[in-house]
Design a protein around this nucleic acid. Structure first.
Ligand SMILES: [Zn+2]
Ligand SMILES: [Zn+2]
Ligand SMILES: [Zn+2]
Ligand SMILES: [Zn+2]
Lengths: 130, 130
DNA sequence: TAACGCTGTGTAATAATATAACATATTTAA
DNA sequence: TTAAATATGTTATATTATTACACAGCGTTA
């Protein structure tokens, strides 16, 4: 369900920037970078980020307040994200693990709660940093 | 490994407050509540929170920037947390599911990364809010 | 004892993250 | 072709979190 063609100007500018980075970007660093393209205010950035998160083009790394592009162009799991985060170099990688996804998708607690979404962040040391 | 007896005055005040609430509290709401006890500045709160998180007495709900007490007094999993969050009433519950914990503890990605910690947040609607 | 490292405290200032409110424009759908 | 929904630009402000500095208490150890 490709939707990029329906993005607005600001959304495209900001998505382009995030997609060019393989690591998460913070809102105010995005703002700094897009000022030359006429985006002047935090709110313009946050609005675009909100939309891009909503349609699954990017994800928010909650523990870092940063945003990373979803590399899976057919991402069906915009609402079911798993990341690995190196606590030393801060390298972030999105994990797509079928078995894990299944397990999480099927998880039922004992409260009868219905889950529509989850976010999982693993922390540790990457190979370079061990 | 009970460590509460070694907590300092500020840490105790703040832990008490958080433990009395069954729902997550935000740092500045904590600050407001403990002003009558002589804690005047954000940093005093954040320092106590940091320590309490570190020793597993409380957990941070990353998506909400809020802090909740760990109800499991023998919590071995201060670094392996799972929460369910109702997106309507914002009710938060810590989940202790043995099978899920095992699955997450044993998870290995294909990058050879060594995980020491994870945080999982499920979102949905609780029974009241469905 | 004295020197040191470690942890915590108190205070002031500031940084970083995010939203409210308002006026207007554009797109979409009935 | 009106109405609803979505997006924009701008200003101001709210919320969350840290830096920097001076000092106090405690245990180790020289
Ligand atoms: Zn993705
Ligand atoms: Zn690393
Ligand atoms: Zn816990
Ligand atoms: Zn609810």
């Amino acid at each position: 369900m490709q939707k990029q063609e329906t993005l607005t100007k600001n959304q495209k500018i900001i998505l382009d920037l995030i997609e060019k980075s393989d690591q998460p970007l913070k809102a105010y660093s995005i703002l700094f970078d897009v000022k030359k393209k006429g985006i002047n205010a935090p709110l313009q950035v946050y609005r675009a980020l909100k939309k891009l998160v909503k349609i699954g083009k990017i994800h928010k790394i909650e523990s870092r307040n940063a945003f990373i592009a979803c590399k899976n162009s057919k991402c069906q799991i915009a609402k079911a994200t798993v990341f690995s985060i190196c606590e030393s170099c801060e390298d972030v990688t999105e994990i797509h693990d079928h078995k894990l996804s299944e397990h999480l998708r099927d998880f039922k607690d004992n409260k009868g709660m219905k889950y529509s979404k989850y976010n999982l962040e693993f922390f540790g040391l990457c190979k370079k940093c061990v």
